[in-house]
Design a binder for these strands. Structure first.
Lengths: 196, 196
DNA sequence: CCATTTATGGAACGATCGATCCATAAATGG
DNA sequence: CCATTTATGGATCGATCGTTCCATAAATGG
């Protein structure tokens, strides 16, 4: 059935390598040289397999979103309570302070900041990803209300946006070099805002 | 005293024009072509007057910070109460939703996100600017405590960082295209977290 | 074993990047 | 008016950008 020379690389691993490059350097600043080196393939193969830089970036955004939302969704389902999930997520993020991971930030928020309200597909994708994060937070808030940890009369949509704002702001603080102590205190204040 | 041909442009206006370009496009994406066009001067004049792109960017960051911190400082002093200052600032920012101004974001947070924890002077400058914003918020919180709007036993430093996180997160939400209604609700939740 | 198909390596493309250089313009002090 | 000093416009630099193209390698089906 298949004819011709078979590819000598894993498209999956190559795409993940590209994602890491975009994550660390941003869309514009990530050069094709950087990408080729990290993906360990030749120019021809990159363009043959992924089209061009923008399409490769879209693939990276897609993978990042799918991985993030999937992981958080599973974690929410497995958590003993939605509030425990939210508190754990934000506290762990605060604990990243000072690490290389903290310096990376989040590819979605990074891209939203870099691309803003552009017309292109990457910008649209980033905005949709933020909406997906907010939707996940909304699920968590609704469950926390059902579990009695958040008052049922509070606006779940507003609280979800509040959490998205909190995560975006927290990631900015971590990028600006805030220490784990400060980040932890901020997160506790953020969580207090949830409980009442 | 002064010899030679006088400059035919206003360095002050030129620097402000450069600041607006960096604000709208980011550091790396702002090309010297963009800058020259906005500043309305020739390459020679730019390099003669401002050194190079990085030094011009530093000047832009310096001006933005001075303008922002100065304006907010005056506004805080003039406000009937520190809490009124904070509520007004965040509510007005939320009202920018959907506007071109909202798409621009804040040059300081934009730069912190783009440059992260780099070694260079621009990154350092952005981090110091975030610290300056937090310091201003701390003043406001301390005054609000003295004025009875925030309980005196609360940690002013933590609340100041909480506000910086809130502003950074709010700017990200605005960039991602959230509407004024959602932004307004988020800000009210943020302000509730201040009062208790 | 040959014709066909696909992947690969690398040269090369035009465009643009930030930066430098030089001839010329336009002011000054003497 | 002339010598000097500084600013300006524009050509030009080497490097790098994203992308395309072509010759070659490596697999397949017949």
């Amino acid at each position: 059935m298949t004819r011709g020379r078979p590819i000598a690389f894993s498209p999956d691993e190559a795409a993940n390598a590209a994602m890491r490059v975009f994550w660390a350097r941003g869309y514009e600043s990530a050069s094709t040289r950087d990408l080729l080196e990290a993906m360990q393939l030749s120019r021809s193969s990159l363009y043959q397999a992924f089209g061009n830089k923008e399409q490769l970036f879209l693939e990276a955004l897609r993978r990042y979103r799918e991985s993030l939302v999937g992981r958080l969704g599973r974690r929410l389902v497995a958590a003993p309570s939605a509030m425990a999930f939210l508190a754990g997520l934000f506290r762990e993020t605060a604990q990243e302070a000072g690490s290389e991971r903290a310096a990376l930030g989040c590819l979605i928020f990074n891209s939203a900041s870099e691309l803003g309200q552009h017309d292109g597909l990457p910008s649209q994708h980033a905005r949709q990803s933020i909406a997906a994060i907010t939707a996940l937070f909304r699920q968590a808030v609704a469950r926390a209300q059902a579990e009695g940890d958040i008052a049922p009369d509070r606006d779940a949509d507003a609280l979800a946006s509040y959490l998205t704002m909190g995560m975006a702001g927290l990631r900015t603080l971590l990028k600006s070099g805030v220490d784990a102590g400060q980040a932890g205190q901020v997160v506790e204040l953020l969580l207090d805002g949830l409980r009442r």
